[in-house]
Amino acid sequence: MKQNLFSALAGAIFGIGLLISGMTDTTRVQGWLDVFGEWDPTLAFVLGGALIPMAIAWRIAARRRTALLGRTIPLQPGGTTTDAPLVIGSTLFGAGWALSGLCPGPALASLGWGGTGGLVFLIAMLAGMVAAPAARTRLDRLAAAP
């Protein structure tokens, strides 16, 4: 129960941060990516601001190793190698991110006022996520081929 409560709290703070930072406004994100247009550096301030508390959190985590609600803190998350799915996936994600100006967090946070377009984006994003395990299997098979 406590887990769910703190999870909802984290989601809420994340969402408020995305809203007030301007990251739910696609013109800001596209303005950051459009280096040849009227370049908008806001995203750098957002990322810079977000890294500060999180860098401190990792230092605390390295000492405590256990989260307050009892879980072991994942000090080495995800894979360890920079493999093809990482590079290909990030490239595809970047391309999609540029086209609309939305990434997963802001797409969710702006659902309340994003209208039909925001909802259609979310459904397409979920479909892409459903397709990902099969795409990964293909990539692994290609990589394993002699």
Partner: peptide, 15 residues
């Protein structure tokens, strides 16, 4: 919108 959503969903899960 649709192409962007598909790419974001597929790409972020692959990565």
């Amino acid at each position: 919108i649709i192409i962007s959503g598909l790419l974001v969903g597929l790409g972020t899960r692959l990565a």
